[in-house]
Simulated scan of single mutants.
Amino acid sequence: MTEKRYVRQAAALKYDAAKKQAPVLAASGKGLTAEAIIKRAQDNGVPIQQDPALVGLLAELEVNEMIPADLYEAVAEVFAFIYQADKQAGK
Rank of each mutant, 00 (worst) to 15 (best):
E35S: 09
M66V: 03
A12C: 05
D16V: 05
R8E: 15
K30S: 05
Q21A: 12
K39D: 09
G29L: 14
Q21C: 02
T33Y: 11
R8C: 05
A85S: 14
L54N: 01
L58A: 02
K4C: 03
E35G: 06
D86W: 05
Q50P: 07
M1R: 02
D70W: 10
G31A: 13
L58W: 07
T33V: 14
A11K: 13
V46D: 07
A12P: 00
A10W: 10
Y15Q: 08
P52N: 14
R8D: 11
Q49D: 02
Y72G: 00
E3M: 01
A69K: 14
G31S: 12
A53Y: 08
P68M: 11
A27N: 02
Q42P: 01
E3N: 01
A12S: 11
Q88F: 04
G56W: 13
R40G: 02
K4Q: 03
K19M: 09
K19N: 07
L25C: 01
A74G: 02
G90F: 06
K14R: 14
V55P: 09
Q49E: 12
A12N: 05
N64L: 12
E73A: 08
A36K: 12
E62S: 11
I82A: 07
L57V: 07
D70R: 12
L54E: 07
V75K: 11
V75A: 03
K4Y: 01
E35Q: 14
A89Q: 04
D16L: 10
A27M: 07
D43N: 07
A18W: 00
T2Q: 00
V63D: 05
G31T: 09
K30I: 08
E60S: 13
A76P: 05
T33N: 08
E77D: 08
L57W: 11
M66S: 11
L25R: 02
K4R: 04
K87H: 00
P52D: 15
K20E: 12
V75D: 02
E62A: 06
Y6W: 03
Y83V: 02
K19D: 11
A53I: 14
E65W: 03
R8I: 13
A59N: 10
A89L: 06
A59Q: 12
Y15D: 14
Q21W: 05
A80I: 08
V46P: 02
E73F: 11
E3S: 01
A36V: 07
D86G: 11
A85W: 02
V75G: 04
K30E: 10
P52Y: 15
A11C: 15
N64Y: 14
L13R: 03
A10T: 09
A17H: 10
V46G: 03
G90N: 07
G90T: 05
I37K: 09
A36T: 14
A69E: 09
E73G: 00
G56I: 15
K87T: 09
A76M: 06
K30N: 03
R5F: 01
L32F: 10
D86N: 15
N44C: 08
P47S: 09
Y83F: 08
A85M: 15
L57M: 13
A27H: 06
E62Q: 14
P47I: 09
K14P: 01
D86E: 11
L61Q: 01
G45H: 03
G31P: 05
K4P: 00
A10M: 11
Q42G: 04
G90C: 05
A69V: 12
A34R: 09
L71V: 11
T33E: 10
A41Q: 13
D51P: 00
D51Q: 13
E62F: 04
I38S: 07
A74V: 05
P23T: 12
